[in-house]
Amino acid sequence: MRRFSWFNATSLTLGFAFLYLPMIILIIYSFNSSRLVTVWAGFSTQWYGALLQNESFLDAAWVTVQVAVASSTIATVLGTMGAYVLVRGGRFMGRTVFSGMIYAPLVMPEVITGLSLLLLFIGIGLDRGIFTIVLAHTTFSMCFVSVVVSSRLVSFDKSLEEAALDLGCTPFDAFRLVTLPIIAPAVISGWLLAFTLSLDDLVIASFTAGPSATTLPIRIFSAVRLGVSPEINALSTIMIAIVTIGVITASIITKRNSLAQQRDEQAAARTA
């Protein structure tokens, strides 16, 4: 029995207002013509123009995208391998250490991850730049990918893989032809998660970036420390828009896929 009372309606309205009002205000005021960000002086898109001319933001954005694509792709490969090892790997030496290393970075404070990687890079004399940020981001996001993928691996029927092996597939083919298509949604959401984590990360990037490479969050952070600025509002609006479109598209696709799958299953049940 569900009772949707006025109390529920109020708490949902207030709750979602709390979650969304700050971002809505930010978006509205990115179209403010005044430099004083809290006083409305008329509609204008000048800050978007200013943003497009700001080389340091554009450079940082480019670095961020490169880092995010590279690190999330490597992290997806390594994380899927890690998940497979955890769920299907059986027993091997140091399995406990391995699962510990997969789960620990999830709860490790970013300041510690950043500090420890920086000390490593200095210790082995690696020049800091895009490469070191990619290494750092790959390391923590592969663990998130592992967790997402392994939850999918746990839930799927192992006998499908075994059937493929019995029918003469090599283990690699069985993985490629049977396992991978089934876990693909989890692998994709793992990639998306890794990508967003990388785009978002300020703390670890600040530790591992050198003077030659500045990511967008580092750039935003140093600007924001001086207070609110209309350019940052414009930049935030663009980022919020991209994420919103991405998440909504992804949810529509997932919904459509699951509906199609349901139809297929029903059709199969009828013919059988």
């Binding site: 700050p22 930010l26 978002d200 300020l202 952070f221 940052i232 980022m239």
Partner: peptide
């Protein structure tokens, strides 16, 4: 959405 932007 970006953590930094939400704090900002």
């Amino acid at each position: 959405t970006s953590f930094l932007i939400r704090v900002y």
